[in-house]
Design a protein around this nucleic acid. Structure first.
Lengths: 209, 209
DNA sequence: TCATCCATAGTTGCACTGAAACTAGGTCCG
DNA sequence: CGGACCTAGTTTCAGTGCAACTATGGATGA
């Protein structure tokens, strides 16, 4: 009979909203502003507010957050200020622990492209991957800069872990790309359509149909 | 007036379907079967066929694939066999090149959890991250095994690059996690709620409202 | 022998994400 | 005075992901 509908499952946006509201009540636009200010827009997608508003609606429906007040400042449009509830604090804890514990299967784009590389010619692959390498290294450098800068402003390390992590993974991707590009250039990595078709047909022989 | 509606954009599933049809005409279930057989279900999500069927519909509507025939084998339900078109081959090339060239902003779950770590206590974080480390190392080992095994069966390296890449990134994540866990255990990484709130308020002082 | 499971093949509905466009007020700048 | 930009929020649409459902037939097993 009471407020708690059914707890939606944890997602990047819902968790982020709950986390923000741990510190103080906020209106949606304020959340977005804070996230951008703290650079968290690299981690959660708040570029369009659509998902944010809908996440808030769900959290509200589930009783994990509540309306604190509705301010009407002439000057600005109306703003609904939300606060977290005890149920919300609970949900935050369990979502967070789950997300930390289990690496969940996600399906990023790049591996898909990699797994279909053989449809392109080695030299165009090399060019494309070189472009990517440049971008990856640039991203890594940018993350490193923002890491150094926030540290200078006294932000504690625990608030920049996702930054550290991004640097570590970008470095690994960059190194791997360099190796792959080198092998393409040197001719250590080659293939032919016939070879691939032969292997595919061999594997098919063991399958129905 | 002809077939080409508007080319949908490249996504893991649509690219995968087009790529498969480069080798031979297939019906949807056959695609799924092949993908599982080749272990590509680690790379694209074909666990539920919903997305697959809908992707095929879109590709068909855009003229990137075409119906080859509709077999009706008593024994089995009806199967529609598709083949790739020239427009499809074109689209494959450009999607692939794009996906290789630009690292697109994706928003995986783990960094979100990392960026909200401070809501939990150090010892429960340590336990959760230790669980994750175990899972990451296990995944890495599994990828390495499948790499070795397929190589033994004569599958060329170019067909296992996504596997190589996964190993490289898993290794990096594992190493980073080990460092973080060590710092938690040793007390090198600590924080307090007051400290965090102080910093947050300082940063707010420069903002409107 | 009846129950259950598995493979084949596909559909439907729902919840959620992500991009874009649109409304509609305000400020700031030249 | 027009254009750009900020504040705040809504609507629409395309796409993903999960679960559940319909059917049929073969195999497994108690």
């Amino acid at each position: 009979m009471s407020s708690a509908a059914k707890s939606p499952k944890g997602s990047p946006i819902t968790l982020t909203v709950l986390s923000l509201l741990h510190f103080k009540p906020l209106h949606p636009y304020g959340m977005q502003r804070l996230l951008k200010q703290w650079g968290k827009d690299q981690v959660v997608n708040v570029g369009q507010r659509t998902s944010l508003y809908r996440a808030i609606d769900r959290l509200l429906g589930a009783g994990l957050i509540a309306v604190r007040e509705t301010e009407r400042d002439q000057q600005y449009p109306e703003r609904t200020v939300y606060e977290i509830t005890d149920a919300g604090r609970e949900a935050t804890r369990s979502w967070l622990l789950e997300m930390l514990r289990e690496p969940r299967l996600e399906f990023p784009e790049f591996p898909v492209a990699l797994s279909n590389l053989m449809l392109l010619a080695p030299d165009e692959i090399e060019r494309a991957l070189t472009d990517r390498l440049t971008a990856v290294r640039a991203g890594q450098a940018a993350q490193q800069r923002s890491l150094a800068e926030t540290a200078r402003f006294g932000v504690p390390r625990v608030a920049m872990l996702e930054n550290e992590y991004a640097v570590a993974l970008a470095a690994a991707e960059g190194d791997w790309l360099e190796g792959l590009i080198a092998d393409l250039r040197s001719g250590d990595l080659t293939w032919s359509a016939e070879e691939l078709i032969a292997v595919a047909q061999a594997s098919e022989a063991q399958a129905p149909q």
